[in-house]
């Protein structure tokens, strides 16, 4: 299964649980909500979507099946923003 990791080392500010990620090379700034920030913190090292789902379920004590879809969409969005890449 594919694993993902931060594309590079970005400057990150945390404000009220949200993360503001500064991509100085692309001159872009990206803001993540609280759960997005938690998922972002998991991607410091290679992490599969399955691992992220399990960690989020444990951390937030939820068993909701929609989490799987939420995280897949979130990871796709981070890829589109150029913030993560496939770890190989």
């Amino acid at each position: 299964m594919a694993s993902y990791i931060h594309k590079e080392k970005f400057e990150v500010l945390e404000l009220d649980g949200e993360s503001v990620i500064l991509n100085a090379d692309a001159f872009m700034v990206t803001t993540l909500n609280e759960v997005g920030s938690f998922c972002w913190s998991l991607l410091h090292e290679p992490c599969t979507i399955r691992q992220m789902i399990q960690t989020v379920q444990t951390h937030y004590a939820v068993e909701d099946e929609s989490i799987e879809q939420d995280i897949e969409q979130f990871v796709t969005h981070l890829m589109d923003c150029g913030l993560i890449r496939h770890a190989s």
């Binding site: 949200e18 500064l22 001159f27 872009m28 700034v29 990206t30 803001t31 993540l32 909500n33 609280e34 759960v35 997005g36 938690f38 998922c39 989020v56 951390h59 937030y60 004590a61 939820v62 909701d64 929609s66 989490i67 939420d70 995280i71 969409q73 979130f74 969005h77 981070l78 923003c81």
Partner: peptide
């Protein structure tokens, strides 16, 4: 002691605006 779960979201993705 758990935080509330909301779907993880990218709230904003925008270019940096420079004020000179």
């Amino acid at each position: 002691m758990k935080p509330a779960y909301h779907a993880p979201k990218v709230l904003k993705h925008q270019p940096i605006r420079f004020e000179t």
